[in-house]
Each structure stands twice: as C-alpha cells, then as structure tokens.
C-alpha cells in the first residue's frame, strides 16, 4: 500500500511537472501573444492539477489535502479570469489578431 502510494506520487508529480515544462516550451515557441496564452493555460490547468494531486496522494486524507484542494479551487477560479482579462485588454487595445469568422446561430424564439 505504502509502495503504491509512493509510485502514484512519483507518477503524478513528474507528469504534472512535465505539463508545466511543455507549457513553458510553448511560451517560447508560439509565434504571437494569443497563441502563447494557450500555452500558459496548459500549465495552469492540468500541470497544476497533477502536481497538487501528487501532493494530496502523498499526504493522505487530512486537513493538508483539504488545503491542497483549496489551492486548486483558487487556481481554477482565478486563472481563466486573469487570462480572459489579459487577452481582452490586448484585443481591445488593437493588438494584431486574425480576422473574426462569424459562426453564430440565429437565436431560437425571443431573447431572454
């Protein structure tokens, strides 16, 4: 049981850090600001989740793992908000972006 937990911790932490590294590489490889923001969200979602999950598996079910869940909830609430605020600021200030393609559907019935 203890050995299984050890192996699981290794697996989760290493794969989480791997996703963080891929996101970091993406930050350098991507050609413009908007595509870089996708790479950054890679590290904030699955990278952070796997690292925190690895720590939680190591500590077991107690107040420490509850705090880890809090860290994750904060990251999940704040990272899309921060990313959206940033790209919205860049877009409204006219940073060069691809043209808009219209894919809206006509709304069924009256507007709510």
């Amino acid at each position: 049981m203890e050995a299984l937990r050890e192996v699981l911790t290794w697996l989760l932490l290493v794969s989480g850090v791997g996703f963080c590294l891929i996101g970091g590489i993406g930050m350098l490889r991507m050609p413009d600001f908007y595509t870089r923001s996708h790479a950054a969200s890679l590290t904030d979602t699955l990278g952070a989740t796997l690292v925190v999950a690895g720590l939680a598996v190591h500590s077991g079910l107690n107040l420490i793992s509850v705090k880890l869940v809090f860290v994750l909830v904060f990251l999940y609430l704040t990272s899309p908000t921060a990313a959206h605020a940033l790209v919205k600021a860049a877009y409204s200030k006219g940073l060069h972006a691809p043209d808009v393609e219209d894919a809206t559907k006509p709304r069924a019935g009256g507007a709510g």
Binding site: C20, G23, G24, M27, F33, R36, S37, A40, T43, D44, G47, A48, V51, V52, V71, L75, S79, A82, A83, L86, V87, A89, A90, L95
Partner: peptide, 18 residues
C-alpha cells in the same frame, strides 16, 4: 509586447504557488 510580459509574469506567479 507588454501583454507577453504580463502573461509571463502571471505564469511565473502561478508556478511560484506550486
């Protein structure tokens, strides 16, 4: 651009949390 720098700073911050 300044937005790239802010994006990088934000990512630096979330990695600091981890």
């Amino acid at each position: 651009t300044v937005y790239d720098r802010v994006l990088a700073a934000n990512m630096f911050g979330t990695k600091t949390v981890l």
